[in-house]
């Protein structure tokens, strides 16, 4: 009889009973609605134990890869511990090993964590301010096998955390971090699929990890990476991305600006319209959109309307 651990308590689950039924019998009421594995209201995460494959049907692949499953159709085969939301694995110590400005307001911060962080390129971590305990999330631009964690920190006017990271944090100083978190990352479900990636500002950070992760997996389909900013001074990593496009003929890098000079090979205008004009038909494509929430949500809908399936749209909206 499998035991289900939830919120620090153990509950037994009868033979043939779903986790939702088992916990309900014990008076533990989880959110649920259809009871048929369709509406996904009851989604939970297995932090210990492996959910049966059938209990992950219809879930986005990046959620299934992290142990998410549906309690209403999960008949557990072994002891499991669940969490209804993301749970912290505990804070890790990380040391600053490099600070480097990438343009006038974005700094590359490289950290070495005391324990290896197991993550998918494109996920994010939470960073705690050493003095005020303030917590902010930053996307990982690095690849797991690079060892160091790379973050792109934009200086926000009067931003407590970004101001501290830009002005006060010292190489050799340490922070506490936790994570990884997030479901915007690459999976090798189809190596020939065309990929559209759009990063606004430091929305490039997760994409810089995801595009290289895709290439490491041997992705063969075309990859169109748009990096958008108000003006050219807000772009960065153009050399690195141009080099990547040189090395891989399926990679296309398109820097985009709203005002001023247009960078070489780039475009000028509203990023949503530029994407719509450049790739009007997205049936069968996989989409990654990261950065400003308003633009990300707008593009998510635009891409869906242009034919992309919801299961193929991955987003990471952040300020």
């Amino acid at each position: 009889m499998p035991m289900i651990t939830f919120d620090g308590h153990d509950y037994d689950c009868h033979q043939g009973e779903t986790i939702l039924e088992g916990l309900t019998r014990h008076g533990v009421l989880l959110p649920s609605a259809c009871g048929q594995g369709v509406c996904q209201t009851c989604i939970s995460k297995a932090v210990k134990g492996k959910p049966p494959v059938e209990s992950q049907k219809g879930l986005k692949d990046t959620l299934a890869a992290q142990g998410y499953f549906l309690t209403c159709i999960c008949t557990p085969e072994e002891d499991m511990e669940l969490a209804v939301a993301d749970v912290s694995k505990g804070w890790l110590k990380a040391t600053v090993i490099e600070k480097q400005l990438l343009n006038e307001s974005v700094m590359r911060l490289r950290l070495q964590s005391e324990e290896t962080l197991d993550y998918f390129a494109g996920q994010f971590i939470n960073l705690k301010h050493p003095e005020t305990e303030l917590v902010r999330s930053y996307s990982l631009a690095s690849l797991p096998d690079e060892g160091v964690l790379e973050l792109h920190v934009k200086r926000v006017p009067n931003g407590q955390m970004s101001g501290y990271l830009h002005d006060d944090a010292k190489v050799g100083g340490s922070f506490t971090i936790d994570g990884p978190v997030g479901d915007c990352f690459y999976t090798d479900k189809d190596l020939d699929q065309s990929l559209l990636m759009v990063g606004v500002g430091t929305g490039l950070a997760p994409l810089y990890g995801i595009v290289r992760d895709a290439l490491q997996h041997g992705h063969r389909g075309d990859i169109h990476l748009f990096h958008a900013s108000l003006a050219e001074s807000g772009l960065y990593y153009a050399d690195e991305l141009n080099a990547l496009a040189q090395q891989h003929e399926n990679v296309h890098y398109i820097p985009c600006v709203l005002h001023g000079e247009v960078p070489e090979g780039g475009m000028k205008g509203d990023i949503q319209q530029l994407v719509q004009t450049a790739v009007p038909q997205l049936t069968g494509w996989r989409i990654y959109v990261c950065g400003d929430p308003e633009i990300v949500n707008g593009l998510k809908q635009t891409c869906f309307m242009a034919g992309a399936s919801m299961a193929d749209i991955y987003t990471d909206p952040f300020v």
Partner: peptide
Amino acid sequence: DMEKQAGKQKAFLT
């Protein structure tokens, strides 16, 4: 949330 909405539509159409 478009994903949640799609889930509800799926339940409804089912």
